[in-house]
Amino acid sequence: MPVLTYVYEDAGTSRYTDHDQLFKELIHTFFAEFLELFFPEVHKYIDFSAIRPLSEEVFTDLLGGESRRADIVIEATLKGEETILIIHVEPQSYYQANFHERMYLYFSLLYNKYRKPILPIAVFTYDKNYNEKNEFSMSFPFFHVLSFQFLTLTLRKLRWRDFIHSNNPVAAALLCKMGFTEAKRVEVKKEFLRMLVRMQLDPARQRLIYGFLKGI
Results as ranks from 00 to 15, higher is better:
157 K>V: 09
176 C>Q: 10
174 L>I: 02
110 L>C: 07
82 E>T: 09
132 E>Q: 12
115 R>A: 12
73 V>A: 04
99 F>L: 07
146 L>Q: 09
149 Q>K: 15
91 P>M: 11
104 Y>W: 09
140 F>A: 14
168 N>C: 05
140 F>S: 15
181 T>A: 10
74 I>Q: 06
136 F>E: 07
134 N>Y: 10
175 L>I: 06
88 H>D: 12
99 F>Q: 01
66 E>R: 15
169 P>W: 03
168 N>M: 08
98 N>R: 15
122 A>F: 02
72 I>Y: 04
83 T>E: 10
154 T>N: 10
93 S>V: 06
95 Y>R: 08
152 T>V: 11
87 I>N: 00
167 N>T: 08
153 L>C: 02
173 A>T: 09
162 D>E: 13
86 I>M: 07
66 E>Y: 15
64 G>L: 11
152 T>H: 04
65 G>C: 09
157 K>P: 08
175 L>Q: 02
131 N>R: 12
87 I>P: 00
72 I>R: 00
72 I>T: 05
99 F>M: 07
181 T>H: 12
138 M>Q: 13
177 K>D: 13
113 K>A: 04
189 K>D: 11
140 F>C: 08
87 I>T: 01
96 Q>R: 14
171 A>R: 04
153 L>V: 08
93 S>F: 03
172 A>H: 03
71 D>V: 05
127 D>F: 09
174 L>Y: 00
177 K>E: 12
178 M>Q: 07
120 P>D: 00
135 E>F: 13
121 I>Q: 00
80 G>K: 00
164 I>E: 01
182 E>C: 00
76 A>E: 04
126 Y>L: 15
99 F>T: 04
79 K>M: 07
117 P>Q: 03
128 K>I: 08
178 M>D: 03
118 I>F: 07
182 E>M: 04
95 Y>F: 14
106 Y>I: 07
149 Q>T: 10
130 Y>D: 05
131 N>M: 09
179 G>N: 08
145 V>T: 07
114 Y>K: 06
145 V>F: 12
108 S>G: 10
73 V>Q: 01
104 Y>K: 04
118 I>H: 01
75 E>G: 11
98 N>Y: 14
175 L>R: 02
140 F>Y: 15
128 K>M: 08
126 Y>N: 14
81 E>F: 03
118 I>P: 04
114 Y>D: 06
134 N>Q: 11
141 P>W: 06
124 F>I: 13
167 N>H: 12
105 L>N: 05
179 G>Q: 02
184 K>F: 05
164 I>Q: 02
145 V>R: 03
119 L>M: 11
88 H>S: 10
66 E>F: 11
189 K>M: 13
89 V>M: 10
79 K>F: 02
160 W>Y: 14
155 L>H: 00
134 N>T: 11
150 F>N: 05
88 H>V: 02
180 F>Y: 13
166 S>H: 10
142 F>H: 13
97 A>Q: 13
149 Q>D: 08
136 F>P: 01
124 F>H: 08
150 F>Q: 06
144 H>T: 12
170 V>T: 03
